[in-house]
Amino acid sequence: MTSTIVPTLDNYYPLTSQQLESCSAHYTLQWRRGQLLVNSSKRLPQPYLPSLDNQQLLVECLKHSPVNLVSIDAKLGTNMLEFWAEACKQAHKPIFLRLADGSRLFKRTSQGAIWLQFIDRLIAGLLLLLLLPVMATLIILMQLYSPQSLFSLEWCVGEKGKLFQLIRFSTNSQKNSQLGYWLRQSGLDNLPILWNVIRGDISLIFTRCWILEDAVRISLSRSEQLSTLPIVTNSWEVKTES
């Protein structure tokens, strides 16, 4: 059974003209079997909930809620998806991109695929151990040039639409521009992605990874392509497909 969540909050009141463009004015929240469904809805009149516009307040709400996972509508756009994804990350709640065709995001993985994922993570772990001296050397060099920006994080869409952050060495700092250029050209900036493989976010041998912005753009027409585990492609680059 599906029901709309209307929290009992002191700051719950109708929208004013200045609040019509706020984040919470563009979506509705629904509760269904432990899942929080965040839907795009610009036509329905809705109350204004400041706790949904302030990320820290949203984090606290998610932490103290019985929500097991968050399923969010791709129609909300990249900025709002990142807003919710960051809140879910801090609240330790998984968040999934809901596919446009309404297909189920949570399909059981076959026993054979589980073994493949185990082998995938084992290979990534061995590669990480072998490349650890190289990564340590790069970290030392980066600390000499720009100690405040060693890694960069980018939101991506993984298995069955799950949102996760891809880890790379940061190459955008002005202080390490020459080193950053060399890292990008050699593909060594992608070495930390091995940690994503070990965590099960992406794969070395299955399918491709979707950058969040591209996933939002194509999910409305080709959502079935987001139902498989992404792959780390040649030259350690995570490519997208339009």
Rank of each mutant, 00 (worst) to 15 (best):
S170H: 15
K175G: 09
N172C: 09
D189A: 11
L220S: 13
S221Y: 15
S177T: 14
P192T: 09
R199N: 06
K160W: 07
I211H: 13
S203F: 06
G200T: 01
S227I: 05
R184H: 11
Q165D: 03
P192A: 10
P192W: 03
S173D: 10
I205H: 09
L226R: 00
W210Y: 10
W195F: 10
N196D: 07
N172K: 10
V216E: 04
Q225C: 14
S223I: 09
F164V: 01
L183Q: 02
C209K: 09
R217C: 02
I211G: 10
Q165G: 05
T207D: 12
Q185Y: 09
Q178L: 15
R222Y: 13
L163Y: 04
R217H: 03
S203P: 04
L166C: 06
F206Q: 13
W195N: 00
L188V: 04
T171P: 02
K175M: 14
N190G: 15
D201T: 07
T207M: 13
T171W: 00
A215M: 08
G161P: 04
R222D: 12
L163M: 12
I198Y: 11
S177V: 08
L204Y: 05
V216C: 06
R208N: 13
G180V: 06
W182S: 15
I218G: 09
F169D: 00
I218F: 13
F169P: 03
R168C: 06
K175A: 12
D189H: 12
